[in-house]
Nucleic acid binder design. Structure first.
Lengths: 323, 323
DNA sequence: CTAATATGTGAATATTATTGACATATGGTC
DNA sequence: GACCATATGTCAATAATATTCACATATTAG
């Protein structure tokens, strides 16, 4: 039974590894399950195709029907769950985005939609709509989420920030950064920004590292060091003066924000209301770029980068004049 | 996920106990699974209704869709498995019926259908078509198999037999039975026959007991004692003279034989071929009653019972003149 | 009332799935 | 063409989950 889930995920993603990610297990689990299913039906369903898998004819035949049935199943459960609490709207979101973007703004949604009981589920793991009881998710990634309706929300820019009260005062030249503690988060790197600013500096390997980008911002606000900020996580910190923007070089993030939900939920009024609200909020922020209007503390000398179509390039870095 | 299976079975059977039987688990397992599912969706799905369960509105809504999806799932798997080995026909039968009815006759099916690879799966447990890879089953029971296509095959009669070479020779009068070892099987009782024969004798509590009715017959053939035979399990033993029929009292069995299969398999040529063959075989045996033409060794004096519509009465015993 | 038949539930147990470590295979890169 | 990065395959060890067992509770028939 769970073998069918594993098989369907593998068929959908075309990869045991990606199927494993989608189901929050290791590729070994998927492999085992598919082997068991194949033994059960007596045919090979997937076969290795170079660096990945390919469905056999039998697998192809099975995959579609299994997907339909599993979707029916999860839709049926979701609908019953929905009826049980028709006011609930479960939103899955990353903890950092929740803390620094969604929660500061969420008041207006709650005020405008008093008939919706919002349930914000912050998790570092991608919600599985087939399994988790989630109505809608905000995801930060490539935008490739098979089987789900995906709406692009906004893009991000990286630029350095620090507290105006940082020990020794904010750096004045990019070169000064070498003398400051550089705050880091997993999976976000300083290198692209260094390169864009014309600095020949390796990726920092010392100093604190956080698995949650919002904690990096919090540490910067506390004056712990210099952070590489994302526009989406800046909030009012520049306007309030609790953070200052350093230099005028910005680097586009290679990942973007998306609103995703199962196609079967597209008609839900709660889902539509939330989507409309979040798009309105983003428009008000100029797609998250409003924060960049704050004047930088100094220039890098290098040409700055900003406001361009999101970077699909592997490096995630492009050069284009700003303003 | 397996919670949905449990819930569907409970909804289908209207009872946790019967659902548990269908899934070959205890009622506790079903209860736990349904509780977990209810916690997940946030509504009660089933509620206790006296001695049994009743679905709530939410449960009712969910049950139908879940059943459909699960059936789709198992059909999809079955079809792929079918294509993998299009010649295979998996028949689930009870071991006793397999040994004493099906196997002696199966040669003609194999001969007439050389393109079918027959796979006889003998098991004391009822096959679960949703889970087990079975095409068709022969069941001995009440005929109430929800969700399955059921065709009545034949009825059974009970009457005593023994080896002509039994120590001391076969009993001459019913009263003589008291001096013989009475062979017993689980869930088959002498009492109804005693009553019909006008004997005031309690159910035997001593002597060997077998969990497989065919073993009772085998023991009788070996001269171990007197058995209460069923017409369906007699085979050629009366004609061959390895067993003799004692007295002329017969008692109809309250259970009957049925051919069952999932509705989705009704169109399968293999299933239709097997069904046609087995009905032909049964007709040739006069619905299993041909063996009764063998003259009994003696009369009981009591009026004998036979050839009547199967007994739905609780006692399983009815009185009606024979011939 | 009692016996018989159900469901409900918690702790112990059995079963099953998953992991982690390593092996094997493929394709792109210098 | 060797190397490295990226996959899948597979084993025994482990973790997670379902199931059982024993007993409690509830209902109905007689």
């Amino acid at each position: 039974m769970s073998a069918l889930r594993a098989f369907e995920a593998a068929a959908r993603t075309g990869s045991l590894t990606r199927a494993a990610e989608a189901l929050h297990v290791t590729h070994g689990a998927i492999s085992h399950q598919i082997k068991a299913l194949e033994a059960d039906v007596g045919v090979r369903l997937v076969e290795r195709a170079g660096r990945g898998i390919r469905l056999t004819d039998a697998g192809e035949r099975l995959a579609g029907r299994v997907r339909t049935a599993l979707t029916d199943l999860s839709d049926a459960v979701r609908e019953v769950s929905e009826r049980a609490n028709p006011r609930a709207l479960r939103v899955s979101v990353m903890p950092s985005f929740a803390a620094r973007w969604l929660l500061p703004r969420i008041g207006s949604f709650i005020a405008e939609h008093p008939n919706v009981d919002l349930d914000v589920r912050a998790s570092v793991l991608l919600a599985d709509f087939r399994r988790d009881d989630v109505d809608i998710a905000i995801r930060y990634g490539s935008g490739n989420y098979p089987g789900l309706t995906v709406e692009h929300l906004m893009d991000d820019m990286y630029f350095p920030v620090c507290s105006p009260n940082i020990a020794g005062g904010p750096p004045v030249t990019p070169d000064d950064l070498k003398r400051y503690l550089l705050l880091r988060s997993e999976s976000e790197f300083w290198q692209p920004w260094f390169a864009a600013a014309g600095l020949d500096v390796p990726e920092p390997t010392r100093g604190p590292i956080f698995n949650d980008a919002s904690h990096v911002m919090q540490a910067a606000i506390e004056g712990q060091g210099v952070a590489l900020a994302r526009t989406s996580l800046i909030g009012n910190d520049l306007a309030n003066g609790v953070l200052v923007r350093l230099f005028d070089t910005t680097v586009p993030a290679s990942t973007r924000y998306f609103l995703v939900y199962p196609p079967s939920r597209a008609g839900s009024s709660k889902v539509r209301q939330f989507g409309a609200w979040i798009r309105k909020e983003i428009a008000r922020d100029d797609g998250g770029m409003a924060v960049l209007r704050a004047k930088p503390r100094a220039t890098t000398g290098a040409r700055s980068r900003s406001r361009q179509p999101p970077a699909p390039s592997p490096s995630g870095v492009r050069t284009r004049a700003r303003r």
